[in-house]
């Protein structure tokens, strides 16, 4: 197989970027999308050019490093799949492929396809946790959690923190990310004492980071590689509303 790539190249945060065309040949259908980029990069290095900088690590869809928008869709066109798990057999021979970084005001480009997602860390630091010190815990089976609730919490907890939800949203909202984390904790008995405080703290930090508000486009759910449901946003909104009413709780 061969493909024609249009890749976003940008030297650093302050230099404007642009699309550059590359032809890549010798692709096997069993290669992953990132292995196709490896071929391009190896050839660029041998020509003495800077390779395309893109973020990756585990290459099995769990670390959340991937931040590529492929043909306009964060993580590409295969549903429920990070770009590292998208294989070239899902493209056709000779296809034109445009690769850009995740785009959002709160995710500035560091270089080429790599963006700064530290805003997500700061949201968690603001309140995305249960306040428990090491060694305080009682026996795990003394907290009974119905299977249904545990499963629902796990559905939310699967978030890999990649930021595709933000990149897909016309408002660059981070509500799917926030609601996934907070729902996981708010659903569990261990997380209930801080439910309202958590909602307030995370939202406040989200606004500070410049993420937009949710206006129910559901683009986030459509691109989420872990298929996290927008129903968690509704749940989170209820928690936040309760938090706004019960000031000081």
């Amino acid at each position: 197989m061969k493909v024609k790539l249009h890749v976003w190249r940008q030297k650093d945060k302050s230099t404007p970027g642009h699309l550059v065309d590359y032809d890549v040949d010798g692709i096997e259908p069993d290669m992953s999308f990132l292995e196709m980029l490896d071929i391009l990069n190896e050839s660029l290095i041998l020509k003495g050019e800077d390779p395309v900088a893109f973020e990756y690590d585990c290459r099995e869809g769990i670390c959340g490093c991937c931040s590529l928008t492929v043909n306009g869709i964060p993580h590409g066109h295969q549903k429920g799949t990070t770009i590292c798990q998208l294989f070239m057999r899902k493209f056709s021979d000779g296809e034109d492929i445009t690769i850009e970084p995740f785009r959002a005001k709160s995710f500035p480009v560091i270089r080429d396809l790599i963006v700064d997602r530290s805003a997500f860390d700061r949201i968690i630091q603001a309140g995305g946790f249960i306040t428990v010190g090491t060694g305080m815990a009682q026996d795990a089976n003394s907290i009974l959690i119905p299977k249904k609730i545990a499963d629902l919490a796990m559905d939310a907890a699967q978030c890999i923190g990649c930021g595709a939800c933000v990149a897909a949203c016309p408002n660059s909202s981070a509500m799917l990310f926030l609601s996934a984390k907070s729902s996981q904790l708010n659903l569990l008995p261990q997380g209930k004492p801080e439910k309202l405080k958590r909602a307030r703290a995370m939202i406040a930090q989200m606004e500070k980071e410049g993420f937009g508000s949710c206006s129910n486009h559901y683009e986030c759910e459509a691109v989420c590689p872990k298929e996290i449901s927008v129903q968690f946003i509704a749940k989170f909104n209820r928690d936040y509303l309760a938090a706004s009413i019960k000031e000081g709780a």
Binding site: V132, M154, A157
Partner: peptide
């Protein structure tokens, strides 16, 4: 054993049986 207790307290959603036990 302490690790399982600690992780559970942090909100790690370990798999549960129908009765709510791990």
């Amino acid at each position: 054993s302490n690790i399982i207790d600690q992780a559970t307290a942090q909100g790690v959603p370990f798999a549960r049986e129908y009765g709510g036990y791990l």
